[in-house]
Design a protein around this nucleic acid. Sequence first.
DNA 1: GATGTTCTGAACTGAGCGGTTCAAATTTAT
DNA 2: ATAAATTTGAACCGCTCAGTTCAGAACATC
Lengths: 207, 207
Amino acid sequence: MGAKPQLIVKGRKFDQVLEGARNVFMRDGFERASVDDIAREAGVSKATLYAYFPDKRLLFLECASAECRRQAADAESHIDPNAPIADVLRLAAERITAFMLSEFGQRIYRVAVSESENFPAIAQEFYHSGPKLVQGRIAEALRCAVERGEVAIDDIPFAAAQFAQLCKVDIQDRLIFAPAPCCTPQDTTRVIEGAVAMFMARYGVKV
Amino acid sequence: MGAKPQLIVKGRKFDQVLEGARNVFMRDGFERASVDDIAREAGVSKATLYAYFPDKRLLFLECASAECRRQAADAESHIDPNAPIADVLRLAAERITAFMLSEFGQRIYRVAVSESENFPAIAQEFYHSGPKLVQGRIAEALRCAVERGEVAIDDIPFAAAQFAQLCKVDIQDRLIFAPAPCCTPQDTTRVIEGAVAMFMARYGVKV
DNA sequence: GATGTTCTGAACTGAGCGGTTCAAATTTAT
DNA sequence: ATAAATTTGAACCGCTCAGTTCAGAACATC
């Protein structure tokens, strides 16, 4: 049989550890997560865990980095640069709101904010593999649309940031601060349509 | 001499305790703040502290509530409902960005997010005495402007939320996630002017 | 099935923290 | 001055948690 792809990981349980840590850290944050809990969740002995990661902080850093990479990979959507810009924006808005509404999106944001002071490196990585990356994608699409003459924009990155921001209207704050059932699909749709309408009103070229 | 205003507080050191707790909680968050630290910061013995607040959580709740009230009081600015709406919005935007950029604004947001899961009541109070309140103020101003025929808006609260959101473009994320020197006054001005321009393009009535 | 590696489980250390206690000291009120 | 209320400091309890240790079991490899 063909040799299985031998990864650089030293032992069998490496991935289990990372997976378990991911769950617990995302659930409880860095401080409240206990190493014993992580070991239990990972189905691994504490000794094994410490064989791989001699320090809780290192384990957290590794997890957070992995999550950021995963997040960036998930954002790898193919944007059709030839579609009408309003459609492209609507699609982007749908992805942004969906991410915010997802369990994963909320948890990672919370953890990133909470630990941004103790782990500034992680905060930066999150920023670049999340908001900044999205902004860049939108900017690319806008650049195409400007060339096609659909929109007139002087500061493209800024306009992209404005649009991304408009997608969060009322959703982000309520998700974080208000109790659970706070964003109906209708709300989301209104935010998305509102964002597109506002953006086109500002930058759209009258036909 | 006239009797000093006797507050309902039982002892002399009550305010000291609250003040010290405020500082430490805002610096370290709930979990990382130690009661011994708070007592030291307040210049008060641990026994005294526990005489007033028999529980760390109660102390935190009291502090957070007080901060929310303070925050709401600070927002008590007089909006001239007869001024042109663009000017009103510009002023509101300046206040919003100034708050975000302030040390206080950043700390309270961070703490609110961090503790929103363990203290949902606090999170809600923060939301209502902060973002929600601001949104309400803007909505009022918009209502006047609609009556004057300066703008045409169907969903006023939503439009207010949109504007408030536009004031945070790129600032909020960078303040939280990126290292310190990240927002020049020029950046801020661009965000404010960009928000007003966009809002007026969408809702302004052509003269 | 022998050998070397990885994993286990459970006990242990040491430190920090929330919360308590109390006799003595200080402040305030009468 | 005296009595009552408040504050102090320091020791103390019980608990949790990060990190260590190690003899032996499970596993992989040849």
